[in-house]
């Protein structure tokens, strides 16, 4: 068994595509119309095109909104991505207008920062130490 896809629940798939593709820099892998306005929309990292896909999943379920809001209220990221140089990545994303809720900080085995994905989630980026 392999992990081939992981998901982030987004308020609006079109807006999410703008953010995850045009700001974060991921590439579209699959974009399939599922009917009813929903798409099977996945992206991969250009650094690892054959790697795990990120599914931008519509957060239409009634339980999704309170769940996401509760995570954001406590500052808890929905998911986490790895970067080689966190300071450079934070500077790049800020240049694109991305809002950070946690500036780069020491979190033990990693340096980490947290930003707002504009689709109802906080997202963590980490740089492994050593």
């Amino acid at each position: 068994m392999k992990i081939y896809v992981t998901s982030v629940m987004v308020d609006d798939q079109a807006k999410a595509l703008d953010f995850y593709r045009d700001k974060l820099g991921f590439q579209v892998k699959h974009d399939i119309d599922l009917g009813g306005g929903a798409r099977w929309l996945t992206l991969t990292s250009p650094e690892n095109p054959g790697g795990t896909e990120l599914l931008l999943e519509p957060s239409g379920h009634p339980a999704a909104k309170p769940f996401k809001e509760a995570l954001v209220a406590d500052g808890i990221p929905y998911t986490s991505f790895a970067v080689d140089d966190i300071q450079a990545e934070v500077a790049r994303l800020k240049g694109l207008g991305v809002q950070f809720t946690v500036e780069p900080m020491d979190a033990g085995a990693v340096w980490m920062a947290v930003f707002d994905d504009t689709c109802g989630n906080l997202i963590q980026i980490v740089q492994m130490k050593g």
């Binding site: 500052g75 020491d106 947290v114």
Partner: peptide, 10 residues
């Protein structure tokens, strides 16, 4: 935030 307090404690 709650998250930051916990993450920093690591």
């Amino acid at each position: 935030s709650l998250f930051e307090l916990c993450a920093g404690s690591v």
